[in-house]
Design a protein around this nucleic acid. Structure first.
Lengths: 138, 138
DNA sequence: GAAACGGGAGATTATCCACTCTCATTTTTA
DNA sequence: TAAAAATGAGAGTGGATAATCTCCCGTTTC
């Protein structure tokens, strides 16, 4: 997966510090405050992933705006839940689209049935399929 | 509306200060930082609404948790957008329910049509209405 | 019209917080 | 295995921030 890469433990603390322009000790403090959770090697060495680095960069942005760490914790939390809701929202939108399409099809079938003779010589679903196959816009 | 009440400009600064346990000057500072926006009387006197008071109480909570004002601004902002998304979410859920109901009805009509004789002696919609009127569970 | 209250700007101050430094120990790397 | 780097705990510091105070002027109310 591509996700796999983003969470792969890669950089030890000195590298992570360089990448983010932060002091190594600062990174340790951030961890103790629950702002980042790098993985650990067998010998207990912190290993930061790409995702961790990006999180640190976001923290940097927020603190640069004058927000203190207590605020950053809360904001990151809210952000995650906001993204969840957004995903849920997207799912619902897709479901609505799907249902609308289905419904549209049923309505067209009904119209065709209403127009067709009552002797059973016309199969509405067949007509539908033909029309859709021909790219007819319903 | 009930909303009307929540936004009605009611309390001048000394009263708002008592209600929230804050110093009047603090309230002025908060306004200058964009944390609250009380209305003004003709003579430019601040008038706080119920909603304003509640907002102040929320601010109090957040600062008590150690979040500074810059963070509070951001959090209140996010909270509003989160509530918007939540409302949208609710709307979408309602729409899904409505569409599912409609679709269900169409599907039942189709079933009835399939079971009915082809001589036009049965009107599917009439059958539906009768069944629904009798409280039949489709 | 006088007293009480509100508005605005700026100064003051105590507190606190984020970051860095130190140190002793352990782990990694060459 | 020796050098370089990481860990964790704790202390210290510089800077900023939030809250309050002061002062003067305008407004409201009786």
């Amino acid at each position: 997966m591509a996700e796999d890469n983003r969470n792969k433990p890669l950089y030890m603390i000195s590298v992570a510090a360089e990448l983010t322009g932060m002091h190594p000790q600062t990174l340790r403090v951030y961890e103790s405050k629950g702002l980042v959770n790098p993985q650990r090697s067998g010998g207990n060495t912190r290993l930061y992933s790409r995702a961790d680095i990006e999180r640190l960069e976001l923290i940097n942005q927020l603190t640069d705006e004058g927000i203190n760490l207590a605020g950053v914790v809360r904001i990151l939390d809210m952000k995650e839940r906001a993204e969840e809701r957004e995903r849920e929202n997207e799912k619902l939108r897709a479901r609505v689209r799907q249902l609308e399409d289905e419904l549209h099809e049923y309505k067209m079938q009904k119209k065709i049935t209403a127009l067709a003779p009552r002797d059973g010589s016309v199969n509405p679903e067949q007509v539908m399929r033909k029309l859709l196959g021909a790219g007819t816009d319903l």
